[in-house]
Computed example of a mutant assay.
Amino acid sequence: MVRTLLVRGLLLGLLAGLIAGGFAFAFGEPGVDSAIALEEAHAAQEAPGHDHGEEALVGRPGQKAGLFLATGLYGLAVGGIFALVYAGLRGRVGPRSDGGLALAAAGTAFVAVILVPFVKYPANPPAVGDPETINSRTLLYVVTILVGLAATAIAVATARRVTAGPWARWGAAVAAFLVPVIAAWTLLPPVNEVPDGFPATLLWQFRLASLGTQLVFWAAFGVLFGWACDRASRRPVTAASPG
């Protein structure tokens, strides 16, 4: 059963990754092009005659094609991990139906792994960010992901302990999730490396496109994985012939 779920997660994760890649290509790449144009114009002002394109190892057409490779590989990895976690959760927590559990798990993963870090450290286009601080920024981002996962585990444990009713259970779970998350948002240091004069509209178009790409991926994957699980659960089991 675990192997079946793993194969299902890998294949559907790849498909969802390609769907998300299409969204990113349509809504995110124009912002990247604009940000690179701003970066090249700024570099030209500081160093006349400097050609940003000469330094790029991979041109923009290659980068755009590689976008689908990146989102596809991302979908493969996430789909495999999700399938293993789903196999551990199945029959233990969450909705009783396989499809409902898949949707609930995908939505929870989006909130814990994507939305929690995004609120504190939203994505920035290529022209924004100091290369010398990439390690510290990456570490802070990973910390927020761990906080989101830990808060999710605390919320699930809290919900299982509360027996007063569904409203009390959900309220306690939401509170248990928000307390560590808000504490992390408050205590972790801010990162603000947006240069003066960078267009705010372009910045938030890129950020929303980045968040939208993740939302499309998790929505598509959750629906596809849930549909496949429900379909498999309704399939009649054929008894083995004797002898």
Rank of each mutant, 00 (worst) to 15 (best):
V2A: 05
R3L: 10
R3M: 06
L6I: 08
L6N: 02
V7S: 08
V7I: 11
R8I: 01
G9Y: 04
L10E: 06
G13I: 09
G17E: 08
A20C: 03
A20W: 01
F25I: 00
P30D: 00
G31N: 03
A37K: 13
L38I: 13
E39F: 10
E39H: 11
A41R: 09
A43M: 15
A43N: 07
A43F: 08
A44M: 07
A44I: 07
Q45C: 03
E46C: 06
E46N: 12
G49F: 06
G53E: 15
E55T: 14
A56T: 15
L57I: 15
G59I: 06
G62D: 11
K64M: 14
T71M: 07
G72I: 08
L76A: 10
L76W: 01
L76Y: 03
V78L: 11
I81E: 02
V85D: 02
Y86E: 14
V93Y: 11
G94D: 04
G100D: 09
L103H: 09
A109M: 11
A109D: 05
L115E: 08
L115W: 12
F118K: 08
P126I: 04
P126W: 06
P126D: 12
V128F: 08
E132A: 15
E132C: 01
N135A: 14
N135W: 12
N135E: 14
A151R: 07
A153C: 10
A153G: 08
V156P: 07
A157F: 09
T158Q: 15
R160W: 03
R160S: 08
G165T: 05
A168V: 09
A175Q: 05
F177S: 12
F177M: 08
A183Y: 13
W185G: 12
P189F: 05
E193N: 00
P195A: 03
F198G: 01
P199D: 00
P199W: 06
A200Q: 07
L202M: 01
A209R: 02
S210C: 04
G212Q: 01
T213Q: 13
W218L: 03
F221R: 02
V223R: 01
L224M: 14
F225R: 02
F225T: 03
A228C: 13
R231D: 12
R231N: 14
V237P: 06
A240R: 15
